[in-house]
Simulated scan of single mutants.
Amino acid sequence: MPIEQHADTKLQGVSVRSLPKVSLHDHLDGGVRPATIVELADEIGHALPETDADDLADWFEEQSDSGSLVDYIETFEVTLAVMQTRDGLRRIAREFVTDLAADGVVYGEVRWAPEQHLLRGLSLQDAVDAVQEGIEEGEDAAEADGHDIRVGQILSAMRQEGRSLEIAQLAVANRARGVSGFDIAGPEDGFLPAQHRAAFDYLASEFFPVTVHAGEAAGLDSIRSAIIDGRALRLGHGVRIASDLNVVSRAGEEVLVQFGDLARWVRDREIPLELSPSSNLQTGAIEAWGTQWEDHPFDLLYQLGFSVTVNVDNRTQSRTSLTRELATLAETFEYDLDDLQAFQLNAAAGAFLSVEEREELIEVIAEGFAR
């Protein structure tokens, strides 16, 4: 069974799940079906905190709602344990893609860190090959089920480790075999992108796309370093860019905002923000503004013209789907179909594709929303 599919929502009489979607920030090890974890753990003799799939799903949700990115990341020890073999990686990647298709995603980028999947003898290239095989199998299965979907890999280097240049070279070596981008992930506070400047210099020399986790658990310095040192084309989360905005006054629906230089640069350059509302609440990324959906600065950023995109981050940990994220945003901020379409068009424009492919994707989205 796939990750729990939340009840579909209708907006202006239209099924939100049926709308064409783009997923830019979606972790492979954060989107494993609980039932698959139970099966694979049994095969390798790995002890789990819960052995029933439903109970395990509950456990992930409860443990992830910690208010701390560091504590949130600890739950990945469970998923990573069953992602150390070629067959396990291939199966999980295949199911990941079919779950995306069932959620209405037409284009997705799945990020994962190959260096975390070597405990049972796989090489870095073995791991990349296994995930790509699973992705292609998932695309074929989705097509057979009537869904057209394309998924690219984003290879992440763990920012607290020292293998970022090696992973960057791995990504470039596989650019013609399904890898479309590079990222750094892991504990953000204390590990600025500047510490991986050699990797980012190499990627820039190879004209290879980069997105960087920044502005989630750390503040403006992390965003500044992602842009300057990482040459990031997108910001992974980036939600704390809102702290560079000063709300001078409010008069009804009119809000006067003073921009800091960094916020203005991100807005004016249309650098996409890979926002993940449920995850941002769980990790405390928006604690400066509150703890509820209505406190999320998503709407402020959207109204001010930032290139906001909507993402799940980790479907299993947040027990969510892109349908649920969009529907909850619509309910919270009274968005309509035009707003939801704008988020998808922002994501399509920021996708790590050629300009021709992005234009085709934009057409697919426009046609899907028009129907």
Rank of each mutant, 00 (worst) to 15 (best):
I3C: 05
I3A: 05
Q5F: 09
H6W: 12
A7Q: 14
A7L: 13
A7M: 11
K10S: 12
H27A: 06
G30V: 01
G31L: 01
A35S: 15
L40Q: 14
E43Q: 14
I44N: 01
G45H: 09
E62S: 12
L69N: 06
Y72W: 12
F76Y: 11
T79S: 15
T85L: 06
L89R: 10
I92K: 02
R94K: 15
R94W: 01
R94P: 00
E95S: 03
E95M: 04
F96V: 00
V97Q: 03
D99Q: 04
D103G: 03
G108M: 06
V110W: 00
R111E: 03
Q116F: 12
Q116D: 12
H117K: 04
H117F: 04
R120Y: 14
G121W: 09
G121E: 10
A130H: 09
V131P: 01
E133S: 15
I135S: 01
E136R: 14
G138Y: 10
A142Q: 03
D148Q: 14
I149N: 05
I149T: 06
Q153N: 12
I154F: 06
I154W: 02
S156G: 02
M158C: 07
R159M: 09
S164M: 07
Q169I: 05
A171C: 02
R177L: 11
A185K: 01
D189I: 08
D189S: 13
A194H: 12
A194I: 11
H196G: 05
A199E: 10
F200S: 04
F200V: 01
F200N: 01
D201F: 05
Y202A: 05
E206M: 13
F207K: 15
P209K: 12
P209E: 12
P209L: 12
A217D: 13
I223V: 11
I228E: 14
R234D: 02
H237W: 11
H237G: 10
G238S: 12
R240T: 13
I241V: 15
S243M: 12
V247W: 08
R250E: 15
V255D: 08
V257A: 10
F259L: 13
D261F: 00
L262H: 07
L262Y: 06
R264C: 00
R269S: 14
I271Q: 07
S279D: 04
S279C: 15
N280Y: 02
I286N: 04
I286H: 05
A288M: 07
A288W: 04
G290L: 10
E294I: 10
D295S: 13
D299N: 15
V308W: 00
R315T: 01
L322S: 10
T323P: 02
T323E: 04
A330I: 10
E334Y: 09
E334L: 08
D336T: 07
L337I: 09
L340Q: 02
Q341K: 15
F343T: 00
L345E: 11
L345F: 03
N346S: 13
A347T: 06
A348D: 07
G350S: 15
F352E: 09
E363L: 10
E363G: 13
V364C: 07
R371C: 08
